[in-house]
């Protein structure tokens, strides 16, 4: 395999991994801090993607669409947290699974009512709609690099917020020991609401910026959700660091799986997961 081809695969794998990290970090924090297993997390990804498609068509600008879909996803997340998820804190995982499963059905059906069952493409903004030439035959789209860049910036931003701010301290305290949050006199309701909304916003944003690369289609949220579960399981539930490494691992495994074993591409990520679980049943950083 030649150098440029490998480079492209690595860039793709990292880009996919970073995108997964943005979605999975919310999932892992929502579980780590709130103790909620949220199957509807992927629906926020879908929501972001459809908002990007719809708003880009309305406003003519993907940047504008992405900028708008972020607060909308956050708002929807906040409303769902305060209306439904809040009732689940003292219930067991089974009830959480079921309620958020019900939410998925409603999300999917609402999507079908609003935007129909077709697959839609989303135009890459003109500014980023070009490629870097690598050699005679290969080139790399700038938009993908931009997505990687945005994800990396957000990941660093998240790290700064979690490590350096008072809010981040609460988050860390909550993720390592949920009982501690209440003991520290933290406003738990606010913390939970914000964490859930932030998770929804990150998932929504990921869906929005990924839309031009992957197109938008019904059921897209669930495929992301399940891959993110794999990421979270590999990394260890509640661990941001684990989610980051897990996401990169899965991003690369998926990309290279498609190159080397195209028939079993979807398999590779699960094989990686099984291997990690055999080695460490509670994930890498639990």
């Amino acid at each position: 395999m030649d150098f440029w081809f490998s480079l492209i695969q690595i860039l793709n794998g990292v880009q996919y991994g970073l995108l997964l990290f943005l979605v999975a970090s919310g999932l892992t924090l929502i579980f780590g801090i709130m103790g909620i297993i949220n199957l509807a997390h992927g629906s926020f990804y879908m929501l972001g993607a459809y908002l990007a498609y719809w708003l880009a068509a309305k406003t003519g600008s993907l940047t504008m669409a992405v900028a708008l879909s972020l607060p909308i996803a956050a708002l929807v997340g906040y409303v769902i947290e305060s209306l439904l998820v809040r009732t689940l804190y003292r219930r067991d995982h089974l009830d959480q699974v079921l309620l958020t499963y019900g939410l998925i059905l409603i999300f999917n059906e609402s999507q079908r009512m609003l935007w129909g069952s077709d697959v839609h493409g989303v135009q890459v903004p003109a500014l980023l709609d070009w490629s870097i030439r690598l050699n005679e035959t290969l080139s790399y789209p700038v938009y993908r690099l931009a997505v990687s860049g945005v994800c990396a910036v957000l990941a660093v931003g998240m790290w700064v917020v979690i490590q350096r701010t008072r809010f981040g301290m609460w988050v860390r305290a909550g993720a390592s020991n949920r009982e501690m949050v209440a003991a520290l006199g933290i406003d738990v309701k606010l913390l939970f609401g914000v964490v859930f909304a932030a998770g929804a916003a990150l998932a929504g944003l990921s869906g929005a910026i990924a839309a031009p690369m992957n197109s938008v289609y019904p059921g897209m949220g669930e495929s992301v959700l399940i891959i993110c579960f794999v990421v979270v399981v590999i990394g260890g539930v509640g661990s941001i660091k684990g989610a980051f490494l897990g996401a990169l691992l899965i991003g690369l495994a998926d990309t290279f799986g498609k190159v080397f074993v195209p028939d079993f591409a979807s398999f590779t990520v699960y094989a990686v997961m099984a291997a990690v679980l055999l080695w460490k049943p509670r994930g890498l950083f639990a």
Partner: peptide, 19 residues
């Protein structure tokens, strides 16, 4: 493979194996 895990891991792992 799954029974080595418990609680939320078990849910996620069975989901992943199902997929």
């Amino acid at each position: 493979l799954s029974i080595r895990t418990s609680g939320i891991y078990f849910i996620m792992v069975t989901l992943a194996f199902g997929q």
